[in-house]
């Protein structure tokens, strides 16, 4: 297994899929000549040319719609939206066209597009560059939402998403592109559904996804020293959520903390809590708890920004409180 960065893993998946299938294309702002804001398509323009590695105008909704229209004819577009804050503009085409066309055509037409976009709070980018939008995407029938927490997942999820016949939204993270991790040397397809047990434990389940998995792991290490044995579940698929996996873990630990970088309202945490209620309410020894962002537009000031979003320490505190320590 090679160690590579998150962006390199994404780049590798693009490259392999484009080499294999001439109908795979990628498109987005500054992805061609520049190679992508986060280098995810570096070198591909020279290798595959401007017709397949397309620098688009700053027209998020319409170039996304263009990719969707091309996918009706069997093209497999990987659409990069530079930031989820800009993906708001493309939600019309993603929600109204890609997610619904299979259903409203009675199965005649499908939009096998991949839309990748980084979200999250990075370093002092201010309110309009710090959104976390996964909660919006995961509520839409007909759209798959996955969110990689490691280079291996970033690689394998993109590989599967390109080949899957459904539209897939891949929620990446601005702070994770330089994260290193092992990626299998052989071609690898990560399941688009399910969840992963990142760390097994028996006292509390910490649910995370994308960057918050890492906060959960750090918290679990700290809590282990204090005698609290946490299980960490990585919800790499946000739509659909892994009901069975959530139930299995909570039925074992009887306690749940859900950790998300986004605001609590109408989010991953609320949804996981609802699933716990529906699937294993009587297994619970304590009321589930959410660790999430404060409900504010993300501030510029460094201290305010840090205070607005969760971290490992806040997870540790929530877990301690849950077991009365």
């Amino acid at each position: 297994m090679a160690v590579m960065m998150y962006w390199e893993a994404i780049r590798r998946a693009h490259d392999e899929e484009m080499a294999r299938d001439p109908l795979v294309i990628c498109m987005g702002e500054d992805i061609g000549v520049v190679g992508g804001t986060y280098k995810a398509t570096q070198g591909l323009y020279d290798k595959y040319g401007p017709d397949r590695v397309i620098d688009t105008p700053i027209s998020e909704n319409s170039y996304t719609g263009l990719g969707i229209g091309a996918s009706f004819l069997g093209i497999r577009p990987i659409i990069e939206i530079m930031s989820v804050n800009f993906a708001w503009l493309a939600t019309d085409q993603i929600f109204n066209s890609a997610a619904k066309v299979r259903y409203m055509s009675g199965g005649q037409l499908t939009a096998p597009v991949v839309i990748r976009s980084p979200g999250g709070t990075a370093h002092q980018l201010g309110a309009q560059h710090s959104a976390r939008m996964e909660k919006v995407f995961m509520g839409i029938a007909g759209l798959r939402v996955v969110t990689p927490s490691s280079p291996k997942q970033a690689y394998g999820l993109l590989k599967s998403a390109v080949r899957c016949n459904d539209p897939v939204f891949i929620n990446e993270h601005e702070l994770m592109y330089n994260m290193k991790g092992e990626v299998p040397d052989a071609e690898y397809f990560h399941p688009l559904e399910g969840s992963e047990v990142t760390r097994a434990g028996k006292d509390i389940t910490l649910f995370g996804y994308n960057i918050s998995v890492h906060w959960c792991v750090q918290a679990a290490e700290q809590l282990a020293k204090e005698g609290i044995d946490c299980e960490v579940i990585d919800l790499y698929s946000l739509s659909p959520l892994d009901r069975a996996g959530i139930k299995k873990s909570v039925s074992k630990t009887h306690r749940a903390v859900i950790v998300e970088e986004a605001e609590a309202a109408v989010g991953v945490g609320s949804e996981v809590m609802a699933i716990i209620n529906e699937e294993c309410f009587f297994e619970l020894d304590a009321a589930p708890v959410r660790v999430s962002a404060v409900n504010v537009p993300i501030p510029y000031n460094h201290h305010l920004e840090k205070a607005a979003i969760p971290n490992a320490k806040k997870v540790v505190e929530a877990a301690r409180e849950m077991v009365g320590k």
């Binding site: 229209g69 093209i75 085409q93 109204n96 055509s105």
Partner: peptide, 28 residues
Amino acid sequence: FDVKHRFMGGYALVGGPFPLAVGMAKGI
């Protein structure tokens, strides 16, 4: 929709089909 006759749909969002049409042209 009648995809076998390449009628690629009626869409209810005003302006929604413009980019889809251009995308189909890209595919062609």
